[in-house]
Amino acid sequence: MNKLRTVIVDDHPIVIEGLKNLLSNEENIQIVGSCYNGQDLLSYLKYHPVDLILLDITLPDINGMELCKLIKAQSVETIILILSNHTERSIILQTIQNGASGYLLKNSALAELRHCIAEALKGNICYSREVVEIISRPSKNGSLALPKLTRREQQILALLAEGKTSQVIGQELFLSPLTVDTHRRNLIQKFQVKNVAELIMAANQQKIL
């Protein structure tokens, strides 16, 4: 098994050391670096391939939400998982919109982190248990509103519902598979679900398909 080259980004050295110790015996993870701020991470990514980033939201130079976009612009295939104490629903959803594959609170168990890493490798969005409860609550204006989809998102949703892969959808719509994956992630975020199966179910329930 190829190990996931992993970088931990947090402005607290004790958190980094704790995560290193926690993950030291994981068979599929190799900690290759750690950074205390966003700029150091971006500099590291220029010269080193990274499969997985465990990222805090609160950093001294760039907030984690914005950093997600910068990471994806530089290294689109790198998986980002947020490890944070922030519990604001808007922050959680914005990080996913900006390219993160999951969001966990720092009090999460190792089993939850393992699960989220496994789900992210499959291309799914994953949250720790407490985060699921937070984003499942109705928004302040009442029940969850129907998501607003672009024309392209509607096209891709329909093709996903037909069981087509990102590769096939890309060929049909003359898009790269990575672009299709980005639209798929946005759809998953807009419907507030965890994977394509739940996405199709939610779209059917809301009579969008």
Rank of each mutant, 00 (worst) to 15 (best):
residue 2 N to L: 14
residue 2 N to Q: 15
residue 12 H to F: 10
residue 15 V to I: 15
residue 15 V to Y: 08
residue 16 I to W: 09
residue 23 L to Q: 07
residue 23 L to Y: 04
residue 24 S to H: 08
residue 24 S to M: 12
residue 25 N to L: 14
residue 28 N to C: 10
residue 29 I to R: 01
residue 31 I to C: 15
residue 39 Q to L: 14
residue 43 S to W: 13
residue 46 K to V: 12
residue 49 P to G: 12
residue 50 V to Q: 05
residue 51 D to I: 02
residue 52 L to M: 09
residue 57 I to S: 03
residue 59 L to H: 05
residue 59 L to I: 07
residue 64 G to W: 02
residue 64 G to M: 04
residue 64 G to L: 03
residue 67 L to N: 04
residue 68 C to H: 07
residue 72 K to R: 10
residue 72 K to W: 10
residue 73 A to Q: 15
residue 76 V to P: 13
residue 81 L to F: 05
residue 82 I to V: 14
residue 86 H to W: 06
residue 90 S to G: 05
residue 90 S to P: 01
residue 92 I to S: 00
residue 96 I to L: 10
residue 96 I to K: 00
residue 102 G to C: 07
residue 103 Y to V: 12
residue 113 L to M: 05
residue 113 L to E: 03
residue 124 N to G: 09
residue 127 Y to Q: 01
residue 127 Y to M: 10
residue 137 R to M: 13
residue 141 N to V: 01
residue 141 N to M: 05
residue 145 A to F: 00
residue 146 L to Q: 01
residue 150 T to R: 05
residue 150 T to P: 03
residue 151 R to F: 14
residue 153 E to I: 11
residue 154 Q to H: 12
residue 156 I to H: 04
residue 160 L to K: 05
residue 163 G to S: 14
residue 163 G to W: 12
residue 167 Q to P: 00
residue 168 V to L: 10
residue 171 Q to I: 01
residue 172 E to V: 04
residue 175 L to Y: 13
residue 175 L to N: 07
residue 177 P to T: 07
residue 178 L to V: 06
residue 182 T to A: 09
residue 183 H to V: 13
residue 184 R to V: 12
residue 185 R to S: 13
residue 189 Q to T: 08
residue 190 K to N: 09
residue 191 F to M: 06
residue 203 A to K: 11
residue 203 A to V: 14
residue 204 N to S: 11
residue 204 N to E: 14
residue 206 Q to S: 10
